[in-house]
């Protein structure tokens, strides 16, 4: 067999293997996800409804407009008041819990998107955290097996350049914290998410979140990521939240500040 024919045969076999691994059967053509990425727009989860428009998460009085029902809008307003008092409970501040879903698409610092036919891993430097999306044809965990977690259970499929997956099994009010304006979701929350690359330098993540307990309609949020420029020194490093955490959170929810010897220096503490 001539070399040319050998190469064609090898490519055909490789291609058919890749397609067989993608349950969509419509090809697996994700594009180039290599490199280190960062989120665009800051850690306001839904920038399109931010009030004020340039609000920062954690800024007293800042809010978004998730389509909450009256009961959960009231909960949100109560949490906005806690932000004003610097007492919003946020478990990740104490370096002990995963950032969870959907907040994993709302983290500062670097990101890696590790795309293979059977699984996609989204790795955040901050935390660090991992979202595993299974695309090998498996179904969600059955009701008698799954339990509520911060990150939930995600399965999906590729269709050409688009990954579509669903996420269930979220922890709810005490763990599904979306951002530091105070947005939370209930244990009934679930989502359908699409990831694609509209151009070489952008990853677009479109989430449609449904929560029959807290929301009156699907909450659609688009997050974008851009590749961090630079040479081969650009890579994910240790984050190590507990290495020198000089801002522990007190039992009453207030974020403290420690001096270089570890002593609390906040006035009145």
């Amino acid at each position: 067999m001539k070399l040319k024919h050998c190469l064609l045969l090898t490519m055909a076999v490789a291609c058919s293997v890749a397609q067989a691994q993608s349950p969509a059967g419509a090809g697996f053509n994700p594009g180039d996800y290599t490199g280190v990425w960062r989120m665009v727009g800051g850690t306001i989860f839904d920038r399109s409804t931010a009030d004020p428009a340039n609000a920062a998460a954690g800024q007293p009085g800042a809010r978004e407009r998730p389509p909450y029902n009256a009961e959960w809008e009231k909960k949100y307003l109560a949490r906005i008041e806690l932000v004003k008092q610097d007492k919003l409970p946020d478990p990740i501040s104490n370096c002990g819990t995963p950032i969870g879903f959907p907040r994993i698409f709302n983290a500062p610092d670097g990101y890696e998107f590790v795309v293979t036919p059977k699984q996609t891993w989204i790795l955040t430097e901050n935390g660090p955290n991992t979202l595993r999306i299974y695309t090998d044809g498996r179904k969600h965990l059955p009701d008698d097996f799954i339990w509520p977690t911060y990150t939930g259970d995600s399965v999906g499929h590729w269709q050409g350049d688009t990954l579509t997956f669903t996420t269930i099994g979220l922890r709810g009010e005490d763990g599904t914290i979306v951002d530091r304006t105070g947005i939370i979701l209930s244990e009934a929350a679930h989502a359908t998410t699409q990831i694609r690359k509209p151009d070489a330098g952008t990853i677009e993540v479109k989430l449609s979140i449904e929560d029959p307990t807290a929301l009156t309609r699907p909450w659609v949020v688009t997050k974008r990521f851009t590749r961090i420029p630079g040479g081969d020194e650009i890579r994910i490093m240790d984050y190590a939240c507990a290495e020198n955490n000089r801002n522990p959170v007190a039992a009453d929810g207030k974020t403290l500040t420690l001096d270089s010897k570890g002593q609390v220096i906040d006035a009145g503490r």
Binding site: T43, N54, A56, A57, D90, I92, V249
Partner: peptide, 23 residues
């Protein structure tokens, strides 16, 4: 810069609330 702390878009990154700072 305060926004950077919260937004995570620049040199200052937030792992905690920044409400203790006067902007």
């Amino acid at each position: 810069c305060s926004a950077l702390l919260m937004l995570g878009t620049g040199p200052a990154q937030a792992h905690h609330s920044g409400a203790m700072f006067d902007r």
